[in-house]
Write a protein that binds this DNA or RNA. Structure first.
Lengths: 166, 166
DNA sequence: TTTCATGCAAAATGTTTGCACACGA
DNA sequence: TCGTGTGCAAACATTTTGCATGAAA
């Protein structure tokens, strides 16, 4: 019936190379900070927000190597370049890999805030059918299924915790 | 194959009555401001944010009848009471009727920011199948299909406008 | 007459911007 | 060098909070 698994997608260029291409096409420059950020962002496949990225950078490259405004500016550029996808979750922006990663959606645990990815070909069909029905030119979609993950279900009811992403 | 239309749902109590019930169940009180807000919110079926509600209140009930913090507090309560649904869209919270309104999702026009509702029974099936697959206890979901609405498609390319919800 | 709700002002977030200096091409 | 990028500090936008006052029940 359906296939909810996620494979990765082959890409010709590394994220960094792809980003350099993007920069060139816009007459922008590769810098020390941009390199650090791209490396950091693609060093692991996880969801993160601006604060977390800043913290990761601090740990890997040293405090103050990249400033907060630069991180925010870069996140926007990485989204424009097609390397990252952005989503709004509970009032803040959360990012994940887009380049080299297949289309997918998320299960969101309301207790521990974990995000689990899944893929559904059927969903895409529905999406396109709905788009056609309303004569929208569809560019994409975002589906978040909210609920309680198995781990949190098991744990005897405890107080819900403040936001902290995995 | 699918049915993307939206009917309304019969409910026994008016939103106000339903909210009073909710308040009582929590030992809270019905006040002048809460009444004004519930009336305003359910006076038309549209998506709105805190600022817009505040503005609507100012026009209907007079400036300063309800303060900004009260509006924010009430929005939270209305969500808790099941009268409103909240969604994050472009960094701010947008609300819509939940009580007396069937489950649905949205098409979002990236040009004019219009939100169009649709319903899909199939989507719910996928959602539940995915939940089962990952052993999530599913509580709900949020799907936003992004694209360009027919009106904006027709209009010869113009500069994208700043945010302004319908 | 006892809570609970409100308004005010201030604070807390999360994100963006102006500008002088630093740096990549 | 020339123009772009960066960091800093400040501005912003949105939402939340502490606290004294006001109003339901």
């Amino acid at each position: 019936m359906s296939d909810f698994s996620l494979e990765s997608v082959d890409v010709a260029l590394s994220p960094l190379a792809r980003f350099e291409e993007f920069l060139q096409s816009r007459g922008k420059r590769m810098t020390q900070q941009r390199r650090l950020i791209v490396d950091e962002v693609f060093s692991r496949h996880e969801h993160f927000d601006a604060d977390e990225l800043l913290e990761m950078l601090a740990q890997t490259s040293g405090r103050g190597k990249v400033s907060r405004p630069t991180v925010y500016r870069m996140l926007g550029e990485l989204v424009d370049a097609g390397l990252l996808r952005k989503m709004d979750l509970g009032g803040r922006a959360v990012y994940e890999h887009d380049y080299g990663y297949p289309q997918h959606d998320h299960l969101h645990c309301q207790k521990c805030n974990k995000l689990v990815e899944f893929h559904s070909e059927e969903l895409k069909k529905i999406r396109d059918a709905v788009g056609r029905e309303h004569r929208f030119r569809v560019n994409g979609h975002r589906l978040i299924i909210t609920g309680i993950c198995p781990e949190c279900s098991k744990a005897r009811k405890r107080r819900s915790r403040p936001l902290d992403l995995v």
